[in-house]
Design a binder for these strands. Structure first.
Length: 182
DNA sequence: TAGGCCATCTGGTCCT
DNA sequence: AGGACCAGATGGCCTA
């Protein structure tokens, strides 16, 4: 009835997912039970029992967080033989990847619109309006506004100029974005 | 050996 | 009351 929450077993609680986590964490030959702090006796049994259950939940919570991170890693473009990204790297990379993709979309839209206007007004090619449009659009698309407007403030420094990131499928290149973001 | 990364434990706080 | 979330502490493993 007590789920065998004896002191040892408890926090060792072992928990669902020993398999996955074992392979993942270098220091987990036996899943949990790595360290224990606090009172040696664990305090009053009732309290101790609650603590043990809370530990178990916390462990599972962190495991699910790690699972989500792992799924994120799989979605991100990275070479399989490459060393596994750390947690912080994964998050930063994901952030920059999303940013790069949205920029790519944005530029594609701009380009489509531009070609649409070009096709629409071939009759008076020298019209100032069309030139003004193309000029403004191209300038706004390529440089300052694009990078600064859509990218989050803390990202502004990282991804570099938009002209550079145009190969979102290039894992190595995108990975170069990783370090500087905050 | 120092530093980075990680898993776990723990107590506090907030929410249901 | 109990669960979820969080941040600090601790210690193990790995690499430069």
């Amino acid at each position: 009835m007590d789920l065998a929450l004896s002191d040892t077993d408890t926090s060792s609680g072992f928990s669902a997912r020993s398999d996955d986590e074992n392979s993942r964490s270098p220091c987990a030959t036996s899943p949990v039970m790595k360290k224990r702090r606090g009172r040696a006796d664990g305090g009053p049994p009732v309290k101790r029992n609650r603590r043990v259950k809370a530990n178990d939940r916390e462990r599972n919570r962190m495991h699910s967080l790690n699972d989500a991170l792992e799924i994120l890693r799989e979605v991100l473009p990275a070479c399989p033989e490459e060393t596994k990204m750390t947690k912080i790297e994964t998050l930063r990379f994901a952030h920059n990847y999303i940013w790069a993709l949205s920029e790519t979309l944005r530029n594609a839209d701009l380009e489509a619109e531009r070609s649409f206007h070009r096709a629409e007004a071939p009759i008076n090619p020298g019209s100032s309006s069309s030139e003004a449009w193309s000029c403004s659009s191209s300038s706004s698309s390529s440089s300052s506004s694009s990078s600064s407007s859509s990218s989050p403030v803390y990202c502004a420094s990282s991804p570099g100029s938009p002209e550079n990131y145009f190969q979102p499928q290039d894992a190595m290149f995108l990975r170069a974005f990783v370090p500087p973001v905050y």
